[in-house]
């Protein structure tokens, strides 16, 4: 299991390839990548603030829960902070399990918990100024299914 919090970009292909290689008992590898999207048009940048120390602890806790619950052979979480441009990759998760259902479910669980329980805060910068992204009730509700 590996948890990485960094401001630098990551190489998705290299990370996915390294993760998918060498897992002998896992028949299924799932990866998910989140990208900065320009919803309304005019997004200049996405600024991501985080809580150093707690971020790593929270991500490790969440990934550990996923590994235990779905008996994963391995899990990877990479999450960036700082200033990102539209189209840049914000984060990725990868899961390795014996069967694909577990790998998919564990990846969804990781994403649901990352959204609402990892101490990151997004701010969208446009020509009109900067605004904090509000948490959505639907993201909080998504935790109830687990």
């Amino acid at each position: 299991m590996r948890v990485v919090v960094q401001d630098a970009p990551f190489d998705f292909g290299q990370e996915a390839d390294a993760f998918a290689t060498g897992h002998t008992v896992s028949g299924a590898i799932v990866t998910f990548t989140g990208v900065v999207r320009d919803v309304a048009g005019g997004l200049k940048a996405m600024e991501i603030e985080h809580y150093p120390g707690m971020t790593e602890a929270a991500l490790t806790e969440i990934a550990g829960q996923a590994v235990t619950r779905w008996s994963l052979e391995d899990a990877l979480v990479i999450h960036r902070y700082g200033t990102l441009a539209p189209g840049e990759m914000i984060m990725m998760v990868a899961t390795a399990a014996r069967h694909r259902k577990d790998a998919f479910e564990a990846a969804e669980y990781l994403m649901d918990y990352l959204k609402s329980r990892a101490p990151f805060w997004k701010r969208e910068v446009t020509a009109d100024g900067a605004e904090w992204v509000a948490a959505r009730a639907v993201d909080e509700d998504a935790l109830n299914r687990w």
Binding site: G53, R117, A118, P119, K122
Partner: peptide, 26 residues
């Protein structure tokens, strides 16, 4: 101390308190 808590939680022995809006990771 870097663990999510409730507002009625006691502060005995706590060294670090952080306040923030609901998180928007992912």
């Amino acid at each position: 101390d870097q663990q999510l808590a409730d507002f009625d939680a006691p502060l005995d022995g706590v060294r670090e308190v952080a306040f923030f809006p609901p998180m928007t990771g992912g």
